[in-house]
Design a protein around this nucleic acid. Structure first.
Length: 831
DNA sequence: AGCACGCCGACT
DNA sequence: GTCGGCGTGCTC
């Protein structure tokens, strides 16, 4: 089949570039690359005039583009694809479904270490000596460059404390004072360990004896050799020498200097070599513990197994403390045994905890961990580890769904109701739980969704037979469910029994718990000291300059902070409006609760756990460890304390401000409140002999939802809610698409949103289009927001067509001259 | 997204 | 008169 022409054919490759542009870009494959190039491999290309970026090959063909001249691919980075064909298919699906560009998907999918960025770097032109021609500023920059050899734009900006230096740099280039060059940096650095072993000529016993005696005059070196021999007995088994010893093994010993080791290497007595190692070695491995399932766990896993025969997706609804983890472990084992890969998804915060350590103990090093708190290098290791078969099983967060599996038999989505599976910013605004279902179709695998409080959507699908349903209603080890007490704070206030936020009942119980050395968790879903400050004289309220929200007072750092844009201010001593000194804190967050406990129970050891105390890499884990070890009596926290923590000695959970959670102005409020409060309550009393206690402070103890929470009546909540959803056409009966219009001018934003809403309503009808209306926070980062909510019934509607229709209308509005500067965000399946 | 080009205000 | 602001348009 060989002919001249085949040899002459030039190949072209369509590339996915990590930029938000809808199209692929076609580049020419240099002849010498054409044998090696593969779909899914990365290449380096020039994009635009000077940018040099990495791209992934989406397909290879022989059709030269007609409308433009294709540029050449500069470099091929991978001999083997790092993105599989299935992944490309998935990326495409995600881009289409969530209305974004495939480049944006690639951007969240690839760990940063597999992306390459080019950076322009600046260096001195060695032939330049006309400094008198330069302006002061240019001289300044030149000085810095002389000092540092080479600098990036950002570094120059930082050093001379000025932004937007491009034109100055240009001028310097024009005057031939400096030279620009592109530096492409490969981000991923495998971890290497330097090792030494004996040179091959010393491996028989005679040679060894001669060697040691010949070193009599250099005792230090002799000592090293002897030390080596005592750890690697090569005279018995020369094979052992192959693995050698870590160089660091010797440097740990104070008596051994690096110099003497190096001279041994120089002499050829030792040879130095390097090996690549994994970065996960410090997490404990298998401990050989045998996990035995209880009857109900066995039953659940058998049921799931059966249901998988007919359903793609099974929902495991197991109450808090029912021991779902063991069921997961059983299923993971089965899947791994059948030779398929397994992915276990967890919400971000749950991942740092006990469960990972537990899984790791069972599965050892076939398990990879994919987490945002891990460094990039570690993520690249997991990615590559899956590609070359090292990891059969990955535990990870949301973005782990994009890892390069080729034979994924089982995906477990734990805490499937968690909203953190949905990405909000930036695009793709995907929901990993839903993408998991699509993935399982692609791999012909199965999905297990697990939760104590399933999302209404998932439970609805399970009830309707689309998903299988397995229920676990018993707590593990027959631990009793906690007892509940609703505390009427209105009544307590009338009787003047409240002490700030604390009811007398809560205080009594706290005291009792402290006395008995039992631990308490206090839940207030609001961080900071107080959500706002107010002047008693003129009623001024602390507000963010860029957003329409109040500034939260953070006492520890002595700042007012905006939780939307991160804006910070000093705390005013007097009212900025009237000068009065009567500026008071209003409302309360975790900081204030912590503070008041410290005042009322000075002997208690209190720790706060919220975003502010857990920002550092290991802070979260440290707090949990300390709590587990009994070093903390009272843990005060936001929803962080509600996720997947198992503590034996927690006998009480106190909940503040349940009403605020229940009456949040949002259609999912009841569902969310049920989930959140049930999850926190579940932290109490996980022991059989000692049921825990949950105290809920509320202004309205008679609320139906509270009754359902305290009787653990998920079904009751589900039925009440689902009726509401059906009546008002909300999910799961419809799919929601939220279109948000943003602009710094309120009227522009408003007008654009109105026009867009009209266009949409004209086709879809008033019952399907809601708004535009300003969201709860109307202005964020100085942009005025308007939301349009589109409700689309699940049946008899061409979802895809409607989505492209929406996109079309958005483009219509964007072509209007007066409105084109607006930003539009389309969020498919918004939460 | 980045980056260049181009067209108008406030300064040497 | 220039510097430098950011609106606009393009990237194979």
């Amino acid at each position: 089949m060989t002919s001249f022409f085949e040899e002459e054919t030039t190949l072209f490759a369509d590339l996915i570039l990590p930029v938000p542009i809808p199209s692929l870009f076609t580049y020419r494959v240099p002849r010498e690359m054409s044998e090696l190039i593969k779909v899914g491999a990365r290449v380096i290309v020039q994009f635009g005039k000077k940018r040099v970026i990495t791209a992934v090959i989406a397909n290879i063909h022989t059709n030269p583009p007609v409308k433009y001249q294709a540029k050449y691919i500069l470099e091929l980075l991978d001999e083997q694809p790092i993105v599989t064909a299935r992944q490309l298919e998935l990326f495409k699906w995600v881009a289409e479904y969530y209305l974004c560009n495939i480049g944006e998907v690639l951007n969240v999918a690839l760990p940063a270490g597999l992306k390459i960025t080019s950076q322009s770097r600046i260096q001195l032109n060695p032939e330049f000596d006309y400094e008198e021609l330069l302006t002061e500023q240019e001289k300044l920059i030149l000085e810095e460059i002389k000092k540092h050899q080479t600098l990036s734009y950002e570094e120059v900006e930082r050093l001379i404390a000025k932004s937007n230096i491009t034109s100055v740099i240009k001028s310097l280039v024009g005057k031939r004072a400096i030279i620009l060059f592109e530096e492409v940096k490969e981000r991923y650095k495998p971890k290497v360990v330097r090792k030494v072993r004996l040179g091959a000529s010393f491996l028989d016993n005679d040679a060894l004896v001669k060697l040691t005696s010949s070193l009599d005059k250099v005792p230090k070196q002799q000592e090293i050799v002897l030390k080596y021999l005592s750890h690697v007995p090569v005279y018995n088994n020369p094979e052992l020498n192959q693995k050698g010893l870590d160089k660091s093994f010797f440097s740990q010993d104070d008596k051994i200097s690096n110099a003497s080791l190096n001279s041994l290497i120089k002499k050829g007595i030792f040879e130095q070599f390097e090996i690549f190692v994994s970065r996960f070695e410090d997490i404990p491995l298998k401990d050989g513990a045998v996990i035995t399932l209880t009857e109900s766990q066995k039953e659940a896993s058998a049921q799931i197994h059966e249901l998988f025969a007919e359903k793609e997706v099974v929902l495991l609804h197991g109450i808090t403390g029912s021991g779902k983890t063991e069921v997961y472990i059983e299923l993971i084992k089965q899947a791994l045994q059948s030779g398929t890969q397994v992915l276990f998804l967890l919400p971000e915060i749950a991942l740092t905890t006990q469960i990972v350590i537990r899984l790791r103990k069972v599965f050892g090093d076939v398990m990879g961990i994919y987490h945002s708190k891990f460094s990039d290098n570690e993520r690249v290791e997991v990615w590559k580890g899956i590609l070359d078969g090292k990891f059969q099983f990955v535990v990870g967060v949301r973005s782990a769904i994009f890892l390069p599996f080729n034979n994924l038999g089982l995906i477990i989505v734990d805490e499937e109701h968690e909203t953190s599976y949905k990405q909000h910013e930036p695009a793709p605004r995907y929901n990993a739980r839903d993408v998991a279902v699509i993935m399982s179709y692609m791999h012909k695998g199965k999905v297990l969704l697990g939760s104590a409080t399933p999302s209404l959507e998932s439970y609805y699908h399970a009830k309707n037979g689309r998903y299988g349903l397995v229920e676990m209603t018993q707590r593990f080890g027959n631990a009793a469910l906690p007892t509940f007490e609703l505390i009427d704070i209105k009544k307590e206030k009338k009787q003047r029994k409240m002490k700030n936020e604390f009811s007398s009942v809560l205080l009594e119980n706290l005291e009792h718990n402290l006395k008995n050395k039992e631990q308490t968790i206090l839940f207030q879903n609001r961080r900071g000291y107080s959500p706002y400050l107010q002047c008693e004289e003129c009623h001024w309220i602390s507000e963010c300059a860029n957003c329409d929200v109040s500034l939260t007072y953070h006492m520890r750092v002595g700042e007012l902070r905006c939780h939307y844009c991160g804006h910070k201010e000093e705390v005013p001593r007097t009212c900025p409006n009237c000068g009065s000194t009567k500026v008071k804190t209003m409302g309360y967050g975790t900081e204030k609760i912590e503070d008041e406990i410290n005042l009322m129970f000075p002997q208690a050891r209190v720790q706060r756990m919220d975003l502010d105390t857990t920002r550092a890499k290991n802070a979260y884990q440290q707090i949990i460890q300390e709590f587990e070890d009994g070093g903390i009596d009272i843990l005060v926290g936001t929803q962080m304390v509600s996720k997947g923590l198992d503590f034996d000695n927690v006998s009480m959970v106190g909940i503040f401000d349940a009403d605020r959670i229940i009456h949040f102005p949002e259609f999912r409020a009841s569902e969310r409140a049920f989930q959140m409060l049930t999850q926190v309550s579940g932290r109490a009393g996980r022991r059989a002999e000692k049921p825990g206690k949950v105290l809920i402070q509320t202004a309205n103890p008679a609320q139906k939802l509270l009754e359902r929470i305290i009787t653990n009546d998920y079904i009751g909540m589900y039925e009440a809610e689902i009726a509401e959803r059906e009546k008002f056409n909300y999910p799961p009966f419809t799919r929601l698409i939220k279109v948000t219009v943003k602009h710094p001018d309120e009227p522009v934003s408003n007008k654009a949103a109105k026009i867009l809403a009209e266009k949409l309503t004209a086709e879809l009808g008033t019952s399907r289009v809601l708004g535009p209306q300003p969201p709860l926070v109307e202005r964020v980062r100085n942009q005025f927001l308007f939301d349009i909510l589109i409700k689309l019934e699940r049946e008899k509607i061409n979802f895809k067509a409607v989505k492209s229709f929406i996109q079309e209308k958005v483009i219509d509005v964007l072509t209007d001259k007066t409105l084109k500067s607006i930003q539009v965000i389309i969020d498919v399946d918004c939460l």
